[in-house]
């Protein structure tokens, strides 16, 4: 059994003039829970659909369980559970018929898991799918995806449209899956609280480019916040390698920087602030700062220690 479950090499998709996914190299290891984070339209869904062979890549390729994603065999597909963003289910089927239908494509099917989730969410198995609420349909799709106990779970924004009870159930269900060392989850989400609880790896995608791929711990330890207090703001800030985000608060400038080292400290000291504090950014702050900034290419932060890419300097207007 290979330790790599999903791997992409230069995975790219172009729609007309728009590069939706730009040369993504992503590795998902067996047993990990990887959160794919990015703003709407950043390319998460396109990347996921390429992994599953639903969209052909324009360039590059992806493998899932060692098989090229354009040639996934029924045997491989049966080992992968996919929950699509649209939470698709045939509207004319009853809930129990949807289960029977899904069961046909998965040799391993645990009816007790299906019922466990459906009962927990209070869904009636005799209800027509078409008359379920958006959140109920999401819950049904989650049950349909989890019941075959797939080795690899690919969940595209599974929390979309969920009410608080269903959202809690989703987190619990994902945590239950992580109890099995050989099961892997790749999920996209906007809910950073849930990501922090569940994920051990994080991939941040911005405008089609993979900016971060790291374990959550490494990501947190590598992104720091420098808080500089001034009597008078400097006219310019020096170019700081790894600068992710600049924020002005009253008489302070807050710099979020990846891979701070002695050079960073020296540069920041040269700005001439009255007081300099350095703290860890914290997971959510770091994610948001990565997604707030515009422009810039290449991954600033890689688990394998790729040096920080250059970023444009932020000119400072005097205070």
């Amino acid at each position: 059994m290979s330790d790599t479950v999903i791997q992409t090499h230069g995975l790219t998709r172009v729609y007309g003039q728009k590069v939706a996914v730009n040369q993504i190299n992503l590795t998902v290891l067996r047993g990990s829970v990887t959160a794919l984070i990015g703003r709407n339209g950043s390319g998460k869904t396109t990347a996921i659909r390429m992994l599953l062979g639903l969209v052909p890549p324009t360039r590059g390729h992806a493998t899932v369980l060692g098989c090229d994603s354009r040639q996934l065999t029924p045997e491989i597909r049966a080992r992968v559970g996919y929950l699509s963003e649209s939470h698709f289910a045939y509207h004319w089927m009853k809930v129990r018929e949807a289960a029977a239908f899904q069961k046909g494509t998965f040799p391993k099917w645990k009816q007790n898991i299906f019922h466990g989730i459906v009962d927990h969410l209070g869904l009636n198995t005799e209800t027509k799918v078409g008359s379920l609420s958006r959140g109920e349909r999401a819950g049904l799709c989650l049950a349909l995806t989890l019941a075959p106990e797939p080795e690899v779970l690919v969940l595209d924004d599974p929390a979309l449209g969920l009410d608080p009870v269903a959202r809690r159930a989703l987190v619990e269900a994902m945590l239950a899956v992580t109890q099995h060392r050989d099961r892997t989850i790749l999920f996209s989400s906007h809910l950073l609280d849930d990501v922090e609880r569940v994920a051990d790896h994080v991939a941040i995608i911005d405008q089609g480019v993979l900016r971060v791929e790291a374990s959550v711990d490494e990501f947190c330890s590598r992104v720091s916040v420098w808080r500089l207090t001034f009597d008078r703001f400097p006219d310019r800030l020096p170019e700081i390698p790894g600068l992710i985000h600049t924020r002005f608060i009253d008489n302070q400038i807050q710099l979020t920087v990846a891979n701070s080292d002695d050079g960073t400290a020296a540069l920041i000291a040269s700005i001439g602030a009255n007081r300099i504090e350095q703290t860890e950014a914290g997971f959510q702050q770091a994610v948001i700062d990565y997604l707030t900034v515009r422009g810039g290419t290449g991954s600033l932060l890689k688990a394998v220690g790729v040096p920080a890419a250059e970023r444009e300097t932020v000119a400072v207007v005097g205070g």
Binding site: L192, D193, E196, R197, V225, E280, A281, G282, F283, Q284
Partner: peptide
Amino acid sequence: STGSNVPIYR
């Protein structure tokens, strides 16, 4: 608590 700048394990 999530959203803190202290990691959960810490």
